Simulated scan of single mutants.
Amino acid sequence: MLKLKLPPPVVFCIAGLSMFALVGYDIDAGIFRFVFAGSCWFIAILNAIFALRSFKKNRTTANPHHLERVTTLVTTGVFAYSRNPMYLSLVIMLIGWAVMLGSIWTMGIIFLFLVYMTQFQIKPEEKMLAHKFGSEYKLYCSNVRRWL
């Protein structure tokens, strides 16, 4: 079982709330920012749905807390473009939120989110998957980027 400090949805919520706190309560998003943010969220949700469907189709777990239950290395669909499409969806949602909030400073929090997720979530997952799938996983990593 992967020992996580904080589950990814909690880290995502902390990042989003931190972005809001950084900007303050006076949000005056124009139509462009609203449409751009909505588009980001739409793309992110679609990406996450496709990733979850791939897990289900391959009869393997999507739960990062129980990587020991992984039965198949999923490398098709959105996983052919990103090794972490679920986490990429969270980043895309944060980018949309940053645009909605209208502050360049919120990008710093997105950067911190990327660093945290890479160090404390993705790298431990990669280690477990490399142990479980060996050369098949190493080949996948050499062909598909971690984020995009």
Rank of each mutant, 00 (worst) to 15 (best):
W41F: 15
V23K: 15
M1D: 09
R145C: 10
N58P: 10
G38Q: 01
S89P: 04
H131M: 03
Y87L: 08
L73P: 07
V11H: 05
T106Q: 05
P8H: 06
V144I: 04
M100L: 15
V23W: 13
Y137V: 06
G38W: 10
L4C: 02
L52A: 08
T76M: 08
S18F: 05
M86T: 10
F12S: 09
G16W: 02
S89E: 05
L101T: 12
K57D: 05
E125V: 01
K3F: 08
F133A: 08
A62V: 08
P7T: 13
K56C: 06
C40V: 05
Y116P: 01
G38M: 00
A130R: 14
G30L: 08
I31L: 15
A130F: 07
V11W: 11
S89C: 03
I31Y: 15
V23E: 09
F111D: 01
K56V: 13
V70Y: 04
R146C: 09
Y81Q: 03
N47C: 07
M1R: 15
L67A: 02
I43T: 11
K3I: 07
M117V: 06
L88M: 10
K123S: 02
R53D: 01
I49K: 12
A130G: 02
A98T: 03
E126W: 07
M107L: 15
G134R: 10
T72A: 15
Y140K: 02
L4G: 01
D28T: 13
V78G: 09
F55R: 00
F133I: 03
A98I: 09
W147Y: 05
V11E: 01
A62D: 03
K138C: 10
M128D: 04
S39A: 06
I104N: 07
F34M: 14
M1W: 13
I14S: 12
L4N: 07
T60N: 12
Y116A: 00
A80P: 05
F120M: 00
P9Y: 11
M128H: 06
A21E: 11
D28N: 12
Y140R: 13
M1K: 11
G102E: 13
L129W: 12
R83T: 10
L112W: 00
A48W: 08
F20N: 01
G30M: 06
I14H: 10
M19Q: 08
M93D: 01
Y81L: 04
N143T: 00
I31R: 05
S89F: 05
K138W: 11
S54M: 04
V10D: 01
N143F: 08
K5E: 02
S142K: 06
F12N: 06
F42V: 13
A44L: 11
G30S: 11
N58A: 14
W41L: 10
P124W: 01
S103G: 04
L129M: 14
I95H: 03
S89T: 02
A21I: 15
S82D: 05
M19F: 01
L17D: 12
V74K: 06
A98N: 09
W147Q: 04
I49Y: 13
K56Y: 09
C13V: 14
I45W: 09
I14F: 02
I45V: 13
V144L: 01
V78P: 05
I104A: 13
L2N: 00
D28S: 15
T75F: 07
Y25A: 15
E68W: 11
P64K: 14
L17P: 02
G102C: 03
H65V: 11
W105E: 10
M86V: 14
S39N: 07
